[in-house]
C-alpha cells in the first residue's frame, strides 16, 4: 500500500468531516472561530496519531471480543494527557475549547480509524493514516471556523476583514449557523468534486444526479405500499 495515498486521502477522498461526515459534535460545537478550529483539529490529530500507533502496536495481543473497550481506554488515556498538558501550558486555548477536549474520547473519527485501519495495518501506515485523517479534520474545522468567524464576527484569526462598519450576522456563530455553514460547504465540496472528476475524466466519488426514486423525501412515510421494489 502506498503511504502517500494513505496520507492524502484524509484531505479529500475520505475527508472525515465533508466525506465521511464523522466527528460532527466537535465540528459543530467549537468552530465559532478559526483559532478554535485549529486548536481542536490539532488536539484531535495528536490523539488520533497516538492512539493509532499504540493500537497498531498491540493489535495482535488484543482479543477480538474486548477490542472496543481496549481501544476506548487507549484513546481516553491520550485525551486526558492532551487535557492536562493543554490546561498547564496553553491555558487560554484550553479555556475556549473547554468541555470539548474531554469529548474527543467519543469522537467517532478516532474510534473509527482504530477499528477500520490501525487494528489491521502495520504501525508505519497507521501513523500516516492518523496524521492524514487528523490534519484533514483540522483543515476542515479551520475552514468552517474561518467562514463562521468571518460572517459572524467580521474577523478571521482575530484580524478584522470587513472593518468596523460591518454588522455581523450573529446567526452564523450561533449553533444553527454551524449546521448551515457545514451544509453549504458540503454542497460546495460535492460540486467541486464533480467538476474535477469531469475534467480529468474519472468517475466522481459521489453520484452527479439526485435519484428521486430512492430519496426518502419523495416517499410517504406512512404509505408502506409505495416503499415496495420497483416503485
Amino acid at each position: 500500500m502506498d503511504a502517500g495515498k494513505e496520507f492524502i486521502k484524509g484531505f479529500w477522498r475520505e475527508n472525515p468531516v465533508f466525506r465521511l461526515v464523522l466527528g460532527l459534535c466537535p465540528t459543530l460545537a467549537v468552530t465559532t472561530t478559526a483559532v478554535n478550529g485549529i486548536g481542536m483539529g490539532l488536539a484531535t490529530t495528536f490523539v488520533l496519531v497516538s492512539s493509532n500507533t499504540v493500537i497498531s502496536l498491540i493489535r495482535s495481543f488484543i482479543p477480538k471480543k474486548i477490542r472496543i473497550p481496549a481501544f476506548i481506554v487507549t484513546i481516553a488515556t491520550f485525551v486526558t494527557i492532551v487535557d492536562l498538558v493543554m490546561n498547564g501550558y496553553f491555558h487560554a486555548l484550553h479555556k475556549s475549547l473547554g468541555l470539548f477536549i474531554p469529548l474527543i474520547v467519543v469522537n467517532c473519527v478516532i474510534l473509527g480509524r482504530a477499528e477500520a485501519f490501525a487494528s489491521k495495518n502495520p504501525v508505519w501506515l497507521s501513523i500516516v493514516d492518523g496524521l492524514g485523517m487528523g490534519l484533514g479534520f483540522a483543515v476542515s474545522l479551520t475552514i468552517i471556523g474561518a467562514v463562521r468567524e468571518l460572517f459572524g464576527n467580521g474577523t478571521v484569526f482575530n484580524i478584522s476583514i470587513f472593518g468596523d462598519s460591518f454588522n455581523p450576522l450573529l446567526l452564523v456563530i450561533m449553533p444553527p449557523g454551524a449546521f448551515i455553514v457545514l451544509g453549504i460547504l458540503l454542497g460546495l465540496m460535492n460540486r467541486i468534486e464533480i467538476k474535477i472528476a469531469e475534467r480529468s475524466g474519472r468517475k466522481p466519488i459521489i453520484s452527479k444526479t439526485h435519484d428521486c426514486s430512492v430519496c426518502v423525501v419523495n416517499r410517504s412515510w406512512f404509505d408502506l405500499g409505495s416503499m415496495e421494489k420497483g416503485k
Binding site: A70, V73, T80, I81, L84, V85, N87, G88, Y89, H91
Partner: peptide, 28 residues
C-alpha cells in the same frame, strides 16, 4: 489483557498528572 491495558494507562496518567500539576496550578 484488559487489566494490563488499564493498569498501563493508569500508570501513564499518574505520571502526566504529576508532571502537569504545578503548571496548571500556576496557570490558574
Amino acid at each position: 489483557v484488559l487489566t494490563v491495558i488499564t493498569a498501563v494507562s493508569a500508570g501513564v496518567l499518574a505520571f502526566v498528572s504529576y508532571q502537569t500539576e504545578e503548571p496548571i496550578r500556576k496557570a490558574l
